[in-house]
Amino acid sequence: ARLLHGSIFAKVIEGLRELVNEATWECSGNGITLQAMDSSHVALVSLVMRSEGFESYRCDRNMSLGISLVSMSKVLKTMGKDDSLTIRVNDDSDSIIIAMESQNQDKFADYELRLMDLDSEHLGIPDTDYSCAIKMPSSEFSRICRDMSIMGDSVLICTTKEGVKFSAKGDLGQGSIRLVQTTNIEKEEEAVIIEMKEAVALTFAVRYLSMFCKAAPLSPQVGLSLSEDTPLMCEFKIAEMGHVRFYLAPKIED
């Protein structure tokens, strides 16, 4: 799998590695997918990178590759900003080859990372017709998570026709941030768009939402989909090639 802009792949890894330290990559002719839960089984990430999004891609037989995302992140940090990246696994090999090339082809770096034998548990994510779909700038969402974490461990997300409200309370007191829907969309990247069938009010652990925000550099906009008593879906699109979707189980009154 070759990417002209290797930095896209580095951003994907940076976006996942805090939530899941290691994961099994499923490779097929259609591309690369990954599904993994965090160690507490509260959140789940689902990654799709379609073959046509790569400069070149070939996969002769389906493979499951157990990879340490922490190690891969270290290797990818050695990559130059404009380097291209090729990822390769040879038949019957127990390692993955990560090759980087500088833009003017005067530097070539090769790394081999040992593959891991991982016990991965696969979940079926049901198709959900969410009550609310919010789009907002990724940077805004990151900031809201950071700001809400000052006040408490949990954030309550409430949507109405007018907008979306994030609130948190704790020992210090309480705080809230309300975003109203953008009425005059000039720049789509900066817009807040709320599609609502039903109002929702759901509580989530801010710590996980903040971890999802590590994937924010992938896309200028984030999508949040919500339904009562259903995990939140937080989506970052990966250019033309796919997406990273994070799911977070809500906190529910017993």
Partner: peptide, 14 residues
């Protein structure tokens, strides 16, 4: 107090 649910509570195992 709201209790944190597990993701496996919502998504079935394959």
């Amino acid at each position: 107090m709201a209790q944190q649910k597990s993701i496996t509570f919502f998504f079935r195992k394959k």
